[in-house]
Design a protein around this nucleic acid. Structure first.
Lengths: 152, 152
DNA sequence: GTGCTTGCAAACGTTTTGCAGACTC
DNA sequence: GAGTCTGCAAAACGTTTGCAAGCAC
């Protein structure tokens, strides 16, 4: 795993299974509900980013009564625990994924193509921001917009 | 003026006054309406980024009947002409400004502080994106999130 | 039993759209 | 006069919130 540009949130480490997360939830006074478990199952299984709606759809395939507002509330809680992060890849809805899988993105403003951007490419920018502004960047949150090869 | 990382849209050059823009609008088959003129007046006078709501408020101080939907429609048209750009600096509304004044931003996820980011700092990232992915970045559109000096 | 969590419905903030009338050229 | 643009109202979109019932501990 590459060295993170930003230190992970306390609690983000060593959460490799749904049960690990539920244990953390309980340690913080939360409950291990079945909705929570299904939402986590889907998040752990997904290899791609999921919007709240994608996630709700996948969750409802297994537990039809889980409402999208429950999904949003869980996503917020899980972010607060440092388990997941959300990012904005374009003008649509936010996308969510496990914090350990977070990475930066380029998106083409013409065709919408998304490309993963290696964290190392941000080293020089991160260093300048740090030394000259004291600013620690997290390049994952918003995508970098531009024009892809075929749209240039 | 610094060398842009991205070539300006056709038509974005040499538009230094409201009348220049209105001439361009007319050249493209559009009309030089009074709403359009007031909206442009405000955009040219503003030194900061403006949200659609800010802009509407400023416009209505001079022309009270201009509706926010007219503002949005004009903002869209002016973007299509390359006169202005919008950017997303956080989770709130988009902000608009003249294309010639566009720049990148760092915003602190804790306190919301905004700092302007010099385009040169993106040189190495732009180069890697270009040489390895053929991707031409425009670092202005989405802010780079992080933690400012006092919130670190 | 306490109190966290849920489903539902309704609100929210931002942006877009349909329409009939008004204006620019 | 042709066709663009406007004001208004309403809808769309993603997300959040209030509430009363339900569940985990």
């Amino acid at each position: 795993m590459s060295k993170p540009l930003v230190a992970p949130e306390a609690g983000a480490v060593e959460l490799e299974t749904v049960d690990d997360v539920l244990a953390l939830v309980r340690a913080r006074g939360g409950r291990a509900t079945s909705s929570r478990r299904v939402i986590l199952d889907v998040l752990f299984e997904a290899q791609d980013h999921l919007t709240a709606e994608d996630l709700t759809e996948a969750v409802q395939a297994r537990a039809p009564d889980v409402h999208i507002s429950t999904v949003y509330r869980n996503l917020e809680d899980l972010q607060r625990l440092g388990v997941i992060v959300h990012s904005h890849l374009g003008h649509g809805p936010a996308t969510y994924q496990l914090a350990s899988l977070a990475h930066a993105h380029f998106i083409c403003s013409t065709c919408g193509a998304r490309v993963e951007a290696p964290d190392e490419w941000f080293g020089s920018l991160a260093q300048k921001a740090k030394s000259q502004l004291g600013f620690t960047i997290d390049p994952h949150h918003f995508a970098i917009v531009g024009r892809c090869a075929s749209c240039s």
